[in-house]
Design a binder for these strands. Structure first.
Lengths: 335, 335
DNA sequence: CTGTTAGCGCGTTCAC
DNA sequence: GTGAACGCGCTAACAG
């Protein structure tokens, strides 16, 4: 039923070794025989079996990607970067959502390894000791993408989340704001939760502004969450004059909550965030944000992985990509 | 170096067939031997090689997904539905972006087939005769997801795009609008381009409203495109009183362009679209839209594919999921 | 319940 | 420049 390399060999009147050479672009084949083989392939509609090839060669040209949630715009953009570079180097991607659930993450890492992927990209989750153990059983390279492990044992590509948050808050301070509230992510979440909160804290500290407990609330990254927390801030006796959100989506929720209350952004309250997803330009006022280069994080981490898979020398295993403040109309001087 | 089923067999003092049985949960193994084998597996850190298994069993428990662009919110949501159901049935997903480029689509279909996927999900592109030919060379089932082929030769899961557009436009008409402009998608694009335009046309026709050439402009699905086209409509001598957009993102661009001109939505101009992405609730005013059940399209198509892969009887190969009008504040009566 | 024996389709020496 | 033969790690009959 299915046509194999052997059928092609017979049809072309050569051995299967020769067919293999032709298919794999091995130069040691006379042009004429090459032609014969190609014709036989065409005639028979032969399609090489990558599974058999993988078994024989111990390479699958496939990499595993574990992602928190592909329907999240941030991760989707990172994934796009990964896929583009993978494609460029002729790798395919096995994509697994793991929802930042440790058990699921470790489970998919194992099934990916069973599938003999040539490399693994672990994206955006918190890396615990258990993760480290799982990664260490891997015989193929692992790259952390949009996250890092505490001990920096593994190659990774990410931004400096704390510094990004720091810069966002400092921007507010430079504009004269002293009452700055923060909409946080989950503090168990090292990168966009804890680290961004730390950046907020340090920026206040370094500028002699006292941290006020009631100015910090933890959200779940969703739009609605931003609205609810903004509602809470508006109920405070001393309202903040500016709000720093750990993510765009919550920031936009906050902006709309303000507008729903008849308040003006940025005249009454300024809003800034970290991320700079496409949505940031799709609100009025447009959202100022510290931009995280999502596509690049994906692309660079995949590029790094290809080098690791080829055993190429890499100078720097831990890459920290730059972030950048994108000023827009949601922030204004506090005069 | 790598530990195989044979090593485990020796360690446990059984044959490799027995190891294979316990690994595959074959009931025909004495509990005690099963235990011995598990211990040996544990001791050796054995991990089954799915590639070898795939070669022997001719099943990879992997399905290929060709997607236009994973960073597009619509497709990402569909992909999430696919992945969830795949995961439920213990399949993994090889994801390939193809940007709606025919050559690339056909190329990835072929590499996916070479990788011996157990099934193929083709998402969101236009299905040409060449696609049909490519699909026909497949020995595994193919399901079209969020698209269909003209001749309905292949199983598919989609909504009725024409009817969805029709319903949106009719809603406007029912509210008293007669000057209704449309921001289209690419007309080569069968589903969200051509079909939605047809729906617009028929709705006008059936209600005795003449189609005006200057009221129809083709966009590229992006926010900016919606803005530009709205700008154009505003330059018309007779401005429309309502705008129907083929997608959310362009609709939101249109809304913001109106607001930038100091016009009010919906007081001055109403806006409605098809899609109902999460963004639709993240604008002010919130965007009325005919909802397309994206997650479900993915989930149902993957479910259908699992049935096909198991050679189960399926009553209906062509499933058309219902759409639904979600009325929000971007539309108002024309009084 | 368990072991033996063939392949699965291909890459890769090693001769010729 | 080309062919023969082996093995990759596992599943699937078939015996026993």
């Amino acid at each position: 039923m299915t046509v194999t390399i052997y059928d092609v060999a017979r049809e072309a009147g050569v051995s299967m070794a020769t067919v293999s050479r032709v298919v794999n672009n091995n130069p040691n084949v006379k042009p004429q025989t090459r032609k014969k083989v190609f014709e036989a392939i065409e005639r028979l509609g032969y399609r090489p079996n990558a599974v058999a090839r993988g078994l024989a060669s111990k390479k699958t040209t496939t990499v595993g990607v574990v992602i928190p949630d592909i329907s999240n715009a941030i991760f989707a953009e990172v994934a796009r970067g990964i896929e583009d570079i993978a494609n460029m180097y002729h790798y395919n991607i096995i994509l697994c959502n793991a929802d930042k659930k440790k058990e699921k993450e470790i489970r998919v890492v194992n099934t990916l390894l069973e599938k003999q992927v040539d490399g693994l990209l672990f994206m955006g989750g918190t890396v615990t000791e258990e993760h480290v153990q799982a990664f260490k059983t891997s015989s193929v390279p692992v790259v952390l993408c949009a996250t890092t492990d505490e001990k920096k044992e593994f190659p990774s590509v990410d931004i400096d989340h704390e510094k990004a948050a720091y810069d966002a808050v400092e921007t507010l301070i430079a504009k004269g704001h002293r009452s700055i509230a923060m909409i946080c992510g989950n503090l168990q979440d090292l990168s966009n939760g804890y680290a961004r909160y730390q950046g907020y804290k340090k920026a206040l500290e370094n500028h002699g502004i006292a941290l006020r407990e009631e100015y910090v609330r933890v959200g779940n990254y969703r739009y609605e969450s931003g609205m609810e927390i903004m509602e809470y801030f508006l109920g405070l006796r001393e309202k903040p004059t500016a709000v720093f959100s750990a993510t765009d989506e919550m920031a936009i929720g906050a902006i709309h909550k303000l507008q729903d209350h008849g308040l003006k952004v940025p005249e009454d309250i300024s809003v800034i965030s970290v991320d700079n997803t496409r949505m940031a330009t799709m609100v009025r006022p447009q959202l100022a944000a510290v931009a995280q280069p999502m596509y690049d994080i994906g692309a660079v981490s995949m590029r790094l992985l290809t080098k690791l898979m080829k055993n190429e020398k890499v100078e720097d295993n831990i890459v920290v990509l730059p972030h950048e403040l994108i000023m827009r109309n949601s922030v204004q001087d506090r005069s």
